[in-house]
């Protein structure tokens, strides 16, 4: 019990500081892609820039718009962070160790991912602002649609490994093969599908229509100031970091790796996925709302169904035993 509690505290601290580092990393990466230098004045090579950002946000005045639903308005931003962090509890850190080990870890992780939509919607609704409400509606529509391909993509490793325990899935990959690489046909497309659906669930470019700044000001965050805004912003990064970790656990073998399996491999893979996600973010343009729905329902969902079918067929051949 004490071990689990201290592990949980450690995971929260690690995820939050990784998120702070990710903020710096993303800004540097984006700057390099645009032939800029990026933050460089605060600390060595600008490493303490997130701290400075945080201090700036904390100092700012918090404004509650007139006509807003005060309770929901105040409650929503902290909830976004909590729900985003909750999924991190199920990530297996090294062989046999996660904060919460559950037989149905995959299901719970996806469940918490879906839950993360609720505070986003709360924020948009409570703001009493048309842009925020439009953003909230888009977030809800996007989340409910992309939940389907996400579940279908997550089904593939579950079927291949024969378990919904995240650590069991990693164990299977450690003894057999990483699902992202082999079997190549249901594996790799499922990995891509999972990445796309996860990007959409965490409202990242090219799927960030809930806060499309060119049409909706800032979407659900329009009315938020100071640390309240900071929470929503932070939650998005936490969501991406945790999503990258889950993706690497389910498709890239998690803590498995040559020489010494352990936490460092998981961190390395998460970093690679994270870089990939931000590469996409700073390269691609945003989809339109109707294109987003077309992509989901006409392409990703049928593809996901086909992949589930194929992975079941692969299991029937018995080649993976």
């Amino acid at each position: 019990m004490i071990f689990a509690a201290s592990l949980a505290a450690a995971v929260v601290i690690v995820v939050l500081s990784a998120t702070a580092l990710a903020l710096w990393y993303e800004r540097k990466l984006a700057a390099r892609m645009q032939t800029r230098i990026g933050p460089q004045f605060v600390g060595p090579i600008g490493l303490f820039q997130p701290v400075a950002d945080l201090l700036k946000l904390v100092q700012k005045e918090e404004i509650v718009p007139m006509g807003a639903d005060r309770v929901l308005f105040a409650l929503a931003p902290p909830l976004t962070v909590i729900f985003a962090l909750a999924a991190a509890a199920f990530v297996p850190l090294w062989p046999g160790v996660a904060v919460v080990r559950s037989d149905v870890g995959v299901l719970l992780v996806i469940g918490f991912g879906g839950l993360a939509m609720v505070p986003v919607w709360m924020a948009g609704w409570a703001s009493f602002n048309k842009y925020a409400l439009l953003g909230a509606m888009r977030a809800v529509a996007q989340s409910i649609s992309y939940g389907v391909p996400l579940v279908l993509a997550a089904m593939v490793p579950v079927i291949l490994a024969g378990t919904m325990d995240l650590d069991g899935i990693t164990q299977f990959q450690a003894t057999h093969h990483w699902f992202g690489l082999w079997p190549i046909i249901p594996g790799l497309p499922a990995f891509i599908l999972f990445l796309l659906a996860m990007l959409a669930e965490s409202n990242r470019i090219p799927f960030d229509i809930p806060e499309a700044e060119s049409e909706l000001v800032a979407g659900v965050t329009t009315e938020y100031t100071g640390m309240q805004f900071g929470f929503v912003y932070l939650a998005e990064y936490v969501h991406t970091v945790v999503g990258a970790a889950i993706g690497s656990v389910m498709f890239l073998g998690g803590w498995d790796g040559p020489f010494a399996p352990g936490l460092h491999w998981l961190l390395l893979k998460t970093l690679c996925l994270f870089t990939f996600i931000y590469w996409i973010r700073w390269t691609l343009v945003r989809l339109r709302a109707d294109q987003l729905m077309t992509l989901c329902w006409k392409w990703l969902v049928p593809a996901g169904l086909g992949l589930v079918f194929l992975s079941a067929a692969w299991n029937q051949t018995g080649w993976s035993r």
Partner: peptide
């Protein structure tokens, strides 16, 4: 519990 979260709360 997982199904409840996914289907009820999420759906």
């Amino acid at each position: 519990a997982g199904i409840q979260l996914l289907l009820y709360v999420g759906g």
